[in-house]
Deep mutational scan, measured.
Amino acid sequence: SDEELKKRIEELVRRGNKDEARKLAENANSDEARKWWEKLEQL
């Protein structure tokens, strides 16, 4: 689900694993996940 995906992306970003988070968001084929990633990346 998008919610689970967003949690995983956020967790990866928090751990400093941005590349992994980006790949996850891009491969998810989910606009919501991509937007979430872009938002987190700004922080």
Rank of each mutant, 00 (worst) to 15 (best):
36 W>E: 07
18 K>T: 14
3 E>Q: 11
40 L>R: 00
29 N>G: 13
23 K>G: 05
16 G>E: 03
43 L>H: 08
41 E>L: 15
31 D>E: 11
3 E>H: 11
24 L>Q: 04
4 E>Q: 11
28 A>R: 04
14 R>L: 09
19 D>S: 09
13 V>N: 04
17 N>W: 01
9 I>T: 02
16 G>F: 00
19 D>Y: 00
20 E>A: 12
36 W>R: 03
30 S>T: 12
28 A>E: 06
26 E>A: 03
16 G>M: 03
13 V>G: 02
28 A>G: 07
30 S>Q: 04
39 K>S: 13
37 W>Q: 06
26 E>G: 03
1 S>A: 11
34 R>I: 15
7 K>I: 08
8 R>V: 12
32 E>R: 05
18 K>R: 14
2 D>A: 11
13 V>W: 07
16 G>D: 03
20 E>D: 08
42 Q>L: 11
32 E>G: 07
34 R>V: 12
16 G>T: 02
5 L>G: 01
8 R>N: 05
33 A>Y: 10
27 N>I: 11
18 K>N: 10
43 L>Y: 07
26 E>I: 03
36 W>Q: 06
41 E>R: 09
10 E>H: 09
25 A>D: 01
24 L>F: 01
8 R>F: 09
26 E>R: 01
42 Q>R: 11
15 R>M: 14
22 R>Q: 07
30 S>H: 05
15 R>W: 03
28 A>H: 06
19 D>E: 13
23 K>Q: 12
9 I>D: 01
40 L>P: 00
41 E>Y: 04
22 R>M: 07
4 E>D: 12
33 A>G: 06
28 A>I: 15
11 E>K: 00
36 W>H: 13
12 L>I: 04
1 S>Q: 10
10 E>G: 07
24 L>V: 09
11 E>P: 00
3 E>L: 12
42 Q>A: 12
41 E>Q: 15
11 E>Q: 05
39 K>G: 11
19 D>R: 06
14 R>D: 07
23 K>V: 10
16 G>Q: 02
38 E>D: 07
6 K>R: 10
4 E>T: 08
26 E>Y: 03
5 L>V: 06
43 L>M: 13
20 E>Q: 10
32 E>S: 10
23 K>H: 10
32 E>Y: 06
4 E>F: 07
5 L>Y: 04
26 E>Q: 07
38 E>I: 00
30 S>I: 05
8 R>Y: 06
21 A>N: 01
1 S>G: 12
12 L>A: 10
24 L>S: 03
34 R>S: 09
15 R>H: 12
26 E>W: 00
27 N>F: 07
40 L>Y: 10
21 A>I: 04
36 W>K: 02
13 V>Y: 13
26 E>T: 04
29 N>Q: 12
38 E>Q: 01
2 D>N: 11
41 E>N: 13
23 K>E: 11
11 E>D: 13
12 L>V: 03
28 A>P: 03
12 L>P: 02
37 W>G: 01
9 I>H: 02
8 R>L: 14
1 S>C: 14
35 K>V: 06
34 R>E: 11
7 K>P: 01
8 R>C: 12
39 K>R: 09
27 N>Y: 06
34 R>P: 06
41 E>D: 11
20 E>F: 03
22 R>F: 04
7 K>T: 08
23 K>R: 13
10 E>P: 02
36 W>F: 15
24 L>P: 01
36 W>T: 01
40 L>G: 01
36 W>D: 06
20 E>C: 07
2 D>V: 14
31 D>K: 06
23 K>I: 11
16 G>I: 02
41 E>S: 12
5 L>T: 05
9 I>N: 02
9 I>R: 00
2 D>R: 08
43 L>E: 13
19 D>A: 11
17 N>Y: 05
40 L>C: 09
12 L>N: 03
29 N>A: 12
38 E>V: 00
30 S>G: 07
29 N>K: 12
6 K>A: 07
34 R>N: 11
35 K>M: 08
31 D>L: 05
21 A>G: 03
42 Q>T: 09
32 E>A: 11
26 E>F: 02
4 E>S: 09
39 K>A: 14
36 W>L: 10
19 D>W: 00
24 L>E: 03
7 K>R: 13
37 W>F: 14
33 A>F: 15
32 E>P: 05
33 A>Q: 05
33 A>V: 15
33 A>C: 11
25 A>K: 01
27 N>T: 13
3 E>W: 07
3 E>A: 12
33 A>M: 15
6 K>F: 13
9 I>V: 04
37 W>K: 01
17 N>F: 08
16 G>A: 02
1 S>D: 12
